[in-house]
């Protein structure tokens, strides 16, 4: 069972939350100007990172706020949670290598 630190409510069990997938996908400034291929890239294509992953979570059975989490998709370790609109934190891995920036 994961313990997820909601930025609004504090640590709660994972069953209270819903994962909303990859975070920090910016909506195109001028959607009408996009080609079909560019629109598909925005709508559907995802990074599928193995390791550190920045993603959206929803505290569905709690405060019902959306927030972001920096989570490892192999170990499931949650390095940080932060509110919507905040800059993604830079996370140092076990090897000391900084992996931030949601690349």
């Amino acid at each position: 069972m994961l313990l997820i630190n909601c930025p609004w409510c504090g640590p709660r069990d994972e069953i209270e939350f819903t994962c909303g997938g990859e975070a920090h996908i910016a909506r195109p400034a001028d959607p009408a100007a996009l080609s079909d291929q560019e629109w598909a890239e925005y709508l559907f294509m995802r990074k599928n990172l193995k390791g550190l992953h920045y993603e959206r979570w929803h505290h569905s059975y709690g405060c019902r706020q959306w927030f972001n989490a920096a989570r490892d998709t192999v170990t499931h370790e949650i390095h940080a949670t932060y509110k919507m609109g905040e800059t993604p934190p830079v996370v140092a891995g076990e090897d000391g290598v900084v992996k931030g920036g949601n690349s």
């Binding site: 995802r46 990074k47 599928n48 193995k50």
Partner: peptide, 18 residues
């Protein structure tokens, strides 16, 4: 189970989640 990882080696992304 690692299609997204392998596709990224060829420089494109896939519309899926593992």
């Amino acid at each position: 189970g690692h299609s997204g990882v392998v596709a990224s080696m060829a420089g494109f992304r896939l519309p899926l989640t593992a």
